[in-house]
Amino acid sequence: MVGVSAAAALAVAPSVAGAKPAGTDTPVTAKVSLTVNGQRRELELDLRTSLLDAAREHLHLTGSKKGCDHGQCGACTMIVDGRRINACLTLAVMHQGSEITTIEGLGQPENLHPMQAAFIKHDGYQCGYCTPGQICSGVAVLDEIKAGIPSHVTADLNAPMQVTEAEIRERMSGNICRCGAYSNIVEAMTEVAGRKA
């Protein structure tokens, strides 16, 4: 998403200053091109549309959930350009050309991602509402540890990272589960990390 050309800027905002009177609620739209779960998608969106709403309301990918809509619960977590983010706290228009993976892109019932299979095996959920975000976050957390990104509980910032229960709990703190399936989520992630190692 870096290196957007001036032409793209023009396509988004044909005229800049004074394009509309201040304080009105007249929607301003833009063409947005995203690659979602490997497929290129073109949308015409109100600029206010979050990445989460673009997926749920416009692409009908309703796996990602809207919990708090303020980045506090993690139910909307998607993997964007290789990093997990809160899809509710970013605008779709800021993701021109981004590669986005939602829970639907990780795996399907007939072809589960290992993390999805492990959540089922270990009962890593109860009501299931936070689960897509938990699983997307869980997959990304194991990649972050592999990439050597430290966390608040990492004892030595300059030593290789390890997958421990404390590391998983700290790194998953942005995903809230009100049913309290945390211990089973830790077990599911630990198992997947073991398989990968």
């Binding site: 980045g71 993690g74 977590t77 990093r83 997990r84 983010i85 809160n86 706290l89 970013t90 976050s137 990304a140 957390v141 972050e144 990439a147 050597g148 990104i149 430290p150 966390s151 608040h152 990492t154 910032l157 300059n158 790194r171 998953m172 703190s173 942005g174 995903n175």
Partner: peptide, 28 residues
């Protein structure tokens, strides 16, 4: 927070960053 030079020479900065927000937010 993860930059090797920051971890080695400015540990207080790595630690402060890692104490803030969530993994998702720190990525953005």
């Amino acid at each position: 927070a993860a930059d090797p030079r920051v971890r080695k020479d400015y540990g207080v900065l790595s630690r402060a960053l890692l104490a803030g927000a969530s993994g998702q937010l720190r990525n953005k």
